[in-house]
């Protein structure tokens, strides 16, 4: 990934979210305001990836008692686009390794759902997962194209 350094992320705007799907509205408003100067295509991709990544953490990232309840999202604008970092201390989950869903051939066969991670991988330009101690760190890159 054209790698924004950790230092750059340290100085970038961040939002702390509770593990609650209701927080997604606040997240989308926050990211939309920060990315308002970006091309619409990039802003849409960012919006989509945030919703899919954070809703996955809320729904599936079961955590142990005593783990910090927060999800921290950092948004960094740089010369080549936008980078997002999403961190939580739930169960380890690497979306870059999740199997791609088999797209159904007919409506009757369509298994409803299961598309979120697949869409995230298609809409982000770059995606990287790291497990750092007990922390999941997902870094997504978006190029203006």
């Amino acid at each position: 990934m054209t790698d924004p350094t950790s230092d750059a992320f340290a100085a970038a705007p961040a939002i702390r979210l509770r593990r609650d799907l209701g927080e997604l509205v606040r997240l989308a408003d926050w990211a939309g305001a920060l990315a308002r100067r970006q091309p619409q295509r990039l802003a849409f991709a960012l919006d989509l990836c945030l919703e899919e990544a954070v809703s996955n953490i809320v729904k599936y990232g079961v955590r142990a008692a005593g783990d910090p309840p927060e999800i921290v999202v950092t948004l960094l604008e740089h010369d080549e686009g936008v980078a997002l970092r999403i961190e939580d201390e739930g169960e380890a989950f690497d979306p870059t390794r999740a199997a791609a869903p088999t797209l159904p051939a007919t409506i009757e066969d369509a298994a409803v759902g299961g598309l979120g991670v697949f869409l995230m991988r298609k809409f982000a330009t770059q995606i990287r997962y790291e497990r750092i101690g007990r922390r999941n760190r997902l870094t997504l890159g978006f190029a203006p194209r």
Binding site: A45, I107, V112, G113
Partner: peptide, 30 residues
């Protein structure tokens, strides 16, 4: 995003389930 797609697919399955047809009209580019 995916939850909205779920809503559309669930609806299309319901329409198809009783012998009907559903289509989508004029989605924006993204």
């Amino acid at each position: 995003a995916s939850m909205g797609i779920r809503t559309l697919v669930t609806g299309a399955k319901a329409v198809r389930g009783h012998g009907g047809k559903m289509v989508l009209l004029s989605p924006e580019e993204n």
